[in-house]
């Protein structure tokens, strides 16, 4: 469809234009946002509770002050999260929280409402290594830069849902377009990729989109987070919110809401919550980019 839009765009290219404008939108109901992506890493686990904000308000989201926040697993272990700074960051740092194969329940109490959610910790494959190679300037990568490829093999059996996260110099790529959500290391369950190596472009996906490309001495980190099918669905819906600009906007449908797995005991709109609770196992690999001989990308550059 994109190609069609670009061809149509030619017709209007001589006359069309785009400008940033101010838009008046009536206020929506403010709700609790649960950002609870906990994992098995030996580092503080943070559940972020905030309030939603009006669409065009350039303010930070306000912290949500809860009476209690805890996670309970199917072995009846309790993990109590505390917000010592009252900034909405509820933290647990006594022990490793997530273990493979366990079911976890999140409980939040606040404002006279109880919020709950359940998720499961799936296994994750190790990252064997990272390859990198310099890619000269091309369409979609105007500056040229290093492409980094992760080498990992999908776990055998069942459909495995992963979230590949990329960090440049320790900072996550948080653009919607950077969401990389393979199934069995490929695009979908139908790809019959079970137990295979992660395929390009999934194995290098974020690199196609990083605007400030990677150079020498930059650190690059890949993480694979194991997800449940539901969490994969959540991120897919976030991804679907990206609207193509230009002529594509003509044929865009209204932005659809993203689902939530937070259940509320409140009935009013303001007592509902948005957001997601996920329990993942994470594997990770970091390199510092340097000039090197030998091991390059597993596929030819353009």
């Amino acid at each position: 469809m994109k190609k069609i839009f670009s061809a149509i765009a030619i017709v209007f290219s001589l006359t069309s234009c785009e400008d940033v404008i101010e838009v008046e939108v009536s206020d929506g109901a403010i709700q609790l946002v649960v950002d609870a992506f906990v994992n098995n890493l030996a580092e503080p686990q943070v559940i972020n509770l905030k309030s939603t904000k009006q669409f065009f308000d350039e303010v930070v989201q306000e912290a949500f002050i809860a009476d209690s926040v805890y996670i309970k697993d199917d072995l009846n272990n309790m993990y109590f999260f505390e917000d010592e700074l009252n900034d909405g960051n509820y933290t647990w740092d006594d022990s490793v929280l997530v273990h493979e194969g366990r079911t976890y329940a999140l409980m939040i109490k606040g404002n006279g409402v109880e919020y709950s959610s359940i998720n499961f910790a799936n296994p994750v494959p190790d990252i064997d290594s990272l390859n990198w190679e310099y890619s000269p300037k091309t369409i979609g990568a105007e500056n040229g830069g290093y492409l980094v490829e992760l080498v990992a093999r999908d776990l055998i059996g069942q459909a495995d849902y992963y979230w590949i996260r990329f960090k440049k110099n320790g900072v996550y790529d948080t653009r919607r377009a950077g969401l990389n959500l393979p199934v069995d290391g490929s695009f979908s369950e139908e790809s019959m990729a079970d137990g295979q190596l992660f395929i390009p472009p999934i194995s290098t996906f974020p690199m196609f989109n990083v605007e400030d490309s990677l150079g020498l001495k930059d650190t690059a980190t890949y993480e694979i987070w194991s997800l449940t099918e539901g969490t994969n669905g959540f991120w897919s819906e976030v991804l679907n919110q990206s609207i193509s600009g230009g002529i594509g906007a003509l044929f865009a449908t209204p932005t659809a809401n993203v689902k939530t797995n937070i259940i509320s005991t409140g009935t009013e709109l303001k007592d509902q919550a948005v957001g997601w609770f996920s329990t993942s196992l994470v594997s990770s690999k970091t390199i510092i980019i340097k000039e090197k001989e030998g091991e390059k990308l597993s596929f030819p550059l353009f």
């Binding site: 929506g28 109901a29 904000k53």
Partner: peptide, 27 residues
């Protein structure tokens, strides 16, 4: 046209939201 009325971040990714399933709320 339809605009989201609410905005929030999850893991640093920005998400748009339309709590009352409103349509054509902006011009």
């Amino acid at each position: 046209f339809t605009s989201s009325s609410i905005n929030y971040g999850i893991q640093g990714v920005s998400v748009s939201h339309n709590p009352a399933n409103v349509r054509n709320n902006a011009r």
